[in-house]
């Protein structure tokens, strides 16, 4: 089924309302009397997100028929991110924000491998549900746990 029809076919969920742009949908700006369309490229980041999304759509279209070239591209991105990580580590001036940067980079790499190499992007939704549920429970759980150990005795 056509992706656009799927997402913009009239049955917008709250989640999609919040996260996909079509006309006046990005930030749920209250409709005005003019009901004017948002001008083109007036999305956040000047249309960059829109373009990036389109590239991703082209890349990831099809049901698991992605070819080797496509895997090489993902691998190249992974390699480049790893290089950036190591480079970031060696630059003393960037050290002060090393931890958040590394976390973000590793999340990106994680997501790329899971979504594309492990085919979660194309596979049955149930697999995503299972894995994401485990990740969410795990992350929530261990965050609470780390908070507890970091703030042991808070308020005493």
């Amino acid at each position: 089924m056509d992706w656009w029809a799927l997402n913009y076919g009239g049955n917008m969920s709250l989640l999609k309302d919040l996260f996909f742009y079509q006309g006046n949908k990005w930030w749920k700006i209250p409709e005005t009397t003019e009901l004017s369309e948002n001008p083109k490229n007036e999305h956040p980041f000047g249309g960059f997100l829109e373009k990036a999304k389109n590239i991703l759509l082209i890349l990831s279209s099809g049901k698991g028929h992605a070819g080797p070239v496509y895997y090489w591209i993902i691998a190249a991105i992974l390699g480049i991110i790893t290089l950036i990580e190591v480079w970031w580590f060696t630059v003393p001036e960037l050290r002060y924000m090393l931890a958040p940067a590394m976390l973000i980079f590793s999340i990106i790499k994680f997501a790329l491998v899971v979504a594309f190499f492990m085919h979660l992007r194309f596979d049955h939704k149930m697999f995503s549900t299972i894995f994401i549920t485990c990740m969410v429970v795990g992350i929530l759980f261990f965050s609470v746990f780390l908070l507890l150990s970091a703030f042991h005795g808070l308020g005493t």
Binding site: F89, P92, M102, S106, F117
Partner: peptide, 28 residues
């Protein structure tokens, strides 16, 4: 195999890059 790989992605960031920076003086 991919899962083992993503675990290593996390380990590399947390155990190596971030941890190797712990206690490092500004001088490098």
């Amino acid at each position: 195999w991919h899962f083992v790989d993503i675990v290593w992605i996390v380990i590399f960031a947390l155990l190596y890059l971030i941890t190797a920076n712990d206690g490092v003086p500004p001088g490098g």
